[in-house]
Design a protein around this nucleic acid. Structure first.
Lengths: 220, 220
DNA sequence: CATCATTTATGAGTCAAGCTCACAGAACAA
DNA sequence: TTGTTCTGTGAGCTTGACTCATAAATGATG
């Protein structure tokens, strides 16, 4: 009974592995079901017992990727550190991953088109993005940062910049990932606190001092 | 002689138009050459006289789109305005376009995958991105802004954020494009000069003034 | 205008790849 | 052991990109 279930799961995993190999190496369009079946050691028809269509299969591959990426991200970020340190860890993790897994990313990009009848694995991506959202929320809670705008704006700033930058770095090895990260950190500190905080703090202090002085003067 | 050339060009344009219609409405994969031929009023074989493959055809569609977008962007941005005003114009233009032309954008995204044997229309995109680069360079020249980092980092910040944000806004109508633009402007001012500086300057001035006043009062 | 050459158009036919289905075998229940 | 249900197979169906033999149109030449 257990053996049977295991056997089925093994088969499913074998197909998924084969699909991952094929799709990431030659892309979705050129990835052949026949090739996947051969690599998985099953008949073509068998694949359709586990995945309804080719798109279903590629969706499963992408889902698995995001799920794994999220886990690795959570392992990487040390939540006991100050916000900006966490942010830097995450940014570096994200850029490195995009660089190493460019095949997955491109695959995912190519699939992100709803018009092809493809429903993007939004849930998985959401799970990954949540790593950032939670960091940001904690920092707001602790008063480490201040933000006038909604958190989702910061999120788009973070991921949008990194995605574009990692592509730039990938296409032109003369460009440095560390520059991107450094710049992004500057941007975040300037916009949401950090460096700015210190200055604000100084200003606040000055104002408190002045108000006290004025109050005292008024009593005279 | 001229009539013949015109005729050929008209035919090519008809095919391109039909292809645009089909691809943007149902996507690349589901777009049928037969349908395009029907809409263009030519035989299927005729299409292959003008475009070698289906990918060639979709590439032409995307090229035409970026070319047009670039022209419109240049018409929109008023280069006589101060940098941050130009930037806001461009940001608004970009977000609006992405919103209206989401079909093209998705098509383009889907095609951006080199592994499918597709060579992205990089030249066209470069032409569009250059609109930003030139704005930025002029602003640096005039001393309107200061930047420690390379211009391409700022470019990725700009386009990356807008691309992600416009997608967020598209998926959730509760989110506002104006919020994104406002936030992006804040980020740019804070990072590259302008508004943020002025504000800090004004606060510093006010405090200096107040402290002087308090000091004077205290002597009374 | 007639004739030939070259360029352009056609759509029936080819081929490749995703997908189906009738049948076979394995696992399980009675 | 026997019937039932679940799982696997691959030959074949279908669809759609692409080709090619043929035809039509256009242009050049006498």
């Amino acid at each position: 009974m257990a053996t049977k279930r295991e056997k089925l799961e093994q088969r499913e995993a074998a197909i998924l592995d084969a699909a991952r190999e094929v799709f990431t190496s030659v892309g979705y369009e050129k990835g052949r079901i026949a090739e996947i079946a051969r690599k998985a050691g099953v008949a073509e028809g068998t694949i359709y017992l586990y995945y309804k269509t080719k798109q279903d299969l590629v969706r499963a591959v992408i889902n698995a990727y995001w799920s794994d990426l999220t886990k690795r991200a959570r392992d990487t970020v040390d939540t006991s550190l100050p916000f900006f340190a966490q942010l830097e860890q995450f940014a570096r993790f994200h850029m490195t991953s995009f660089h190493e897994d460019i095949d997955y990313i491109d695959l995912n990009l190519a699939m992100r088109v709803q018009h092809l009848g493809f429903v993007a694995p939004v849930d998985m991506i959401r799970g990954y993005v949540r790593v950032f959202d939670e960091m940001f929320a904690r920092a707001l809670d602790r008063g480490e940062i201040t933000s006038a705008a909604s958190p989702w704006v910061a999120r788009d700033l973070f991921f949008g910049t990194l995605e574009h930058s990692s592509r730039s770095v990938f296409l032109d090895p003369g460009k440095s990932a560390e520059d991107c990260i450094a710049n992004l950190m500057t941007v975040f500190r300037a916009t949401y606190g950090g460096g700015g905080e210190a200055k604000h703090g100084a200003l606040d202090d000055a104002i408190t001092r002045l108000e006290a002085a004025v109050a005292q003067l008024k009593t005279l």
